[in-house]
Write a protein that binds this DNA or RNA. Structure first.
Lengths: 223, 223
DNA sequence: GACAGAGTCAAACGGATGTTTCATATTGCC
DNA sequence: GGCAATATGAAACATCCGTTTGACTCTGTC
């Protein structure tokens, strides 16, 4: 149990890191086993193949991180004084982006997610059913309780806008070293979160009002 | 010139489609040549290698589409009555998402872009310097002329939010068949553009006002 | 007709990949 | 100790990959 399963855990750890960093096809079994300090056959012995290892590496992160995010939302919703929309968005962004700061499980998972959205490698349904859909459902229902009631369709589009911005920030940070190396505006995570909260709060409130687009009903709005 | 260069064009056309759809590593030279109806050696003869073909396939789309987008922005900015923010955003979204509707060059290019943001395969600088940066620069400067003056940093973050939402929409549509196949809310492009305009117009105006958000909100701590 | 060059093709090359085989070592149990 | 199950390792296996080779066909020129 001790020595034997340790190899399995070591492979899983290295696989999570390399798959997240380089993707499925750019990571060879030999890359993993050489870093894990074991034989190539160990992957097939413990996991049954490269593809199964990829799924297992994803699964091992999926449950804990999804539940952690949901718990964060639930905790926020259960507060005695209902949180403001700004509070809600700030926590939403932090829960999304905070793991990216350090070399953590959360960072790896977000890179996985980012990759999986671009092109799907996991079995159909796993990613969508066990992560995306529960999270969207929870997020949509939670929007109703921060003072901006909407139709389900409006909520869905708003969540879509939030996640789009945050996923782009994931990559923006990943590209930041190149951006700032060439002298352009550098990407500051704290600054972006502040922007995200202000931008999205106004956007959500505008959608809740439900005014048709051409009208300039928002021109005189104050913060 | 006729028969000879036709093979080159056929390879380039198939390469654009397959690279956009599957990515660089998931597309083999033999996949391309078999669909193009020629020998594997033709790729190396006409393009010098797989990687060069990838770059060439991207370059062949880059110039026209970038210029088209910039021309669209310029045309909008040159109007006698300055466009409203809503008009500006609607055109911005259409220019971004319209190519996705059909099987066009624009669609392939956006899939390329989407892929390249996730993990870079093109030579450093090509993608960033010849597409991203010019577009951001143009977009940032154009924001000043629709009645919402901001600091460069504010503009940059706002453009970031816009592009994040739109790129996510690119993938959202790509995943839409799966989403609606499982009975969830389907992704409607027209509906999303309408939402995008309302959401983003309010967000941009809120950022232009520039009221700072209380620190206690961002950190989640009580004062 | 002879020649040169461009373009195409089947075939093979060298390398990397995921996987399997089989021998060996270790462990737990009687 | 004996033994079966578990785990590991070196090597081989079967593909697939991008690329190269060399022969072949065509075309235009002299």
């Amino acid at each position: 149990m001790t020595e034997a399963q340790e190899t399995r855990e070591r492979i899983l750890e290295v696989a999570q890191r390399l798959f997240a960093e380089r993707g499925l096809e750019a990571t060879s079994v030999r890359d993993i086993t050489s870093e894990a300090g074991c034989n190539v056959a160990a992957v097939n012995y413990h996991f049954g193949g490269k593809e199964s290892l990829y799924v297992e590496a994803f699964r091992a992160m999926l449950g804990p991180l999804r539940d952690q995010r949901m718990a964060m939302i639930d905790e926020l919703m259960a507060r005695a004084p209902a949180p403001t929309l700004e509070e809600y968005l700030a926590r939403f962004a932090e829960g999304f982006l905070e793991p990216l700061a350090d070399e953590s499980l959360g960072r790896r998972f977000m890179l996985f997610v980012s990759r999986e959205i671009t092109d799907q490698k996991l079995p159909t349904g796993l990613f969508l059913d066990e992560f995306i859909r529960p999270l969207i459902t929870r997020a949509v229902s939670s929007l109703d309780r921060v003072g901006v009631p909407m139709t389900p369709e409006q909520s869905f589009y708003c969540i879509f806008s939030l996640i789009g911005q945050l996923l782009h920030a994931v990559k923006g940070q990943h590209m930041s070293e190149q951006l700032e190396r060439t002298g352009a505006a550098s990407f500051d995570l704290g600054g972006f979160i502040e922007h995200f909260v202000r931008f999205s709060a106004a956007g959500i409130r505008a959608c809740a009002l439900g005014a048709p687009i051409p009208e300039t009903v928002l021109t005189g709005r104050e913060s």
